[in-house]
């Protein structure tokens, strides 16, 4: 019995890792094709992180053990690494960071709660805000910071955007991500319940 429970745990981890990996390999690659990395500042990461977060948190409802989200993320990252796509390092780092943050959000309870899912979702989506800057710095070095500072200076002259207004824009972008994360956590919680009822109904 104990062995069957262990096997079920690993199979479910593989399943949800496969779901997340499949989304990254298909939708992620397609979105990066439509929105090239330097042109996209907002949309692709938000969509992909929201979907990944929802999948991983739903997986946690079925594998209620600490570390299950991290393992789901690891499998998704491996599938992304061996799948198609040009730039894989960014998505792989994002998947692992988001998994770690979701685990942090659910650290104190093995069974996920509604508020735990919401917190985990907010933490995962907050990474998306910093990920853009981190990846640009990693890929392009300090040159990109220099360009950004000079462009900010020119924006000040052309658009009348001073430092305070730029800060407000950045805060708004972060708040949007946090709200999306909360929604994803809530969606995962609700989804988990409905899936469990459907599976129990179909098993009878």
């Amino acid at each position: 019995m104990k062995q069957a429970t262990q096997i079920r745990m690993w199979v479910y981890i593989g399943l949800f890792g496969s779901l997340w990996g499949a989304v990254e390999m298909t939708l992620g690659s397609a979105l990066h094709l439509v929105f090239p990395p330097l042109a996209n500042t907002f949309l692709v990461g938000l969509i992909m992180t929201s979907i990944g977060c929802s999948v991983a948190l739903t997986g946690r409802r079925f594998v209620p053990r600490r570390g299950s989200i991290l393992l789901i993320g690891l499998i998704a990252a491996i599938l992304k690494a061996i799948g198609p796509g040009t730039v894989k390092i960014g998505p792989m780092i994002a998947i692992m960071a988001e998994s770690l943050l979701m685990e942090a959000g659910l650290l104190f309870r093995t069974e996920s709660t509604r508020w735990g899912c919401i917190l985990a979702g907010m933490l995962a989506l907050s990474w998306n805000f910093f990920h853009r800057f981190m990846m640009m710095g990693l890929l392009y070095g300090k040159g990109i910071a220099e360009i950004a500072v000079r462009m900010a200076g020119e924006a000040d002259g052309v658009l009348g955007l001073d430092e305070q207004k730029l800060l407000v824009v950045l805060i708004v972008l972060l708040v949007i991500r946090l709200l999306c994360g909360a929604l994803c956590g809530l969606a995962a919680w609700t989804l988990g319940d409905r899936i469990r009822r459907r599976v129990q109904h179909e098993s009878r």
Partner: peptide
């Protein structure tokens, strides 16, 4: 769509669990 997708793959996963248990697979 999401509920149908995940629940049908969970049911398939249960078949994998049964097959692995029948072969006395021990992941530990």
């Amino acid at each position: 769509f999401l509920i149908s997708l995940i629940s049908s793959t969970l049911l398939q996963a249960d078949q994998v669990v049964n097959a692995a248990s029948a072969r006395a697979f021990d992941p530990s």
